[in-house]
Design a protein around this nucleic acid. Structure first.
Length: 151
DNA sequence: GCCAACGTTGGC
DNA sequence: GCCAACGTTGGC
C-alpha cells in the first residue's frame, strides 16, 4: 500500500465538504497536469491512503485522511463542454484525463500547518516542501507515520 | 496583490 | 527540438 497527498482549495472543496458528500466520496476531477495525472493513472491503487491538503487559504496544511476507492476513471469534466475543465482534445475513445475516486476516512484532530512541517528535519525531503506546485504527490511511509505520530 | 517556480504553447 | 512568451500555482 502506498501513501499520497492531494491538494484542494478549501474555498472550492474542503475536507469537510468531502465528509458531507454522498458516501463521503468524490471523483477527483479537474486535474490538468500530466505529472499529477500519471501518478493517479499509473501509481495509485484502491486502498491507498491519502492526505487531504488545504492550499491557497489562511492556514495551508493537512486537514484529513482519505482512501482511494476507485481508479481508472475518465475525468467527467474533461468531456463536459459546459465545464471549465473541458478538454476538446479528449474523448471517450481517447480519454486524456484519468483520475480516481476517494472517500473520507477521518479528519485530523488538528490541521497540520505547512508552516510547522517546515520545522521538522524528518520531513525535509517531502515533495510538498520541495516541489510545491504538484497537486498530486507521493508521501513516503516514514513521512506519513511521522506526521501522524509526531505532529 | 506580489512574485518565484515551473508547466505549456507555439514559432522557428 | 529549442526557447521565449505566457499562464498557473500557491505561499506570503
Amino acid at each position: 500500500m502506498n501513501y499520497w497527498l492531494l491538494k484542494s482549495e478549501p474555498d472550492s472543496f474542503s475536507f469537510n465538504d468531502l465528509e458531507r458528500a454522498l458516501n463521503k466520496r468524490t471523483v477527483w476531477d479537474g486535474v490538468r497536469n500530466y505529472q499529477a495525472r500519471n501518478i493517479m493513472r499509473d501509481d495509485m491503487q484502491v486502498g491507498d491512503l491519502v492526505f487531504f491538503y488545504h492550499s491557497s487559504c489562511p492556514i495551508p496544511g493537512i486537514a484529513g485522511i482519505c482512501r482511494v476507492t476507485q481508479t481508472d476513471i475518465i475525468d467527467p469534466s474533461s468531456l463536459d463542454p459546459s465545464s471549465k475543465y473541458f478538454d476538446p482534445k479528449s474523448s471517450l475513445e481517447k480519454p486524456r484525463w484519468i483520475t480516481i475516486e476517494v472517500e473520507a476516512v477521518e479528519a485530523l484532530p488538528k490541521i497540520i500547518p505547512l508552516k510547522e512541517m517546515h520545522q521538522h528535519e524528518a520531513l525535509a525531503n517531502m515533495v510538498l516542501l520541495n516541489r510545491s506546485r504538484l497537486s498530486v504527490q507521493p508521501v513516503r511511509a516514514d513521512e506519513w507515520h511521522y506526521l501522524l505520530n509526531n505532529m
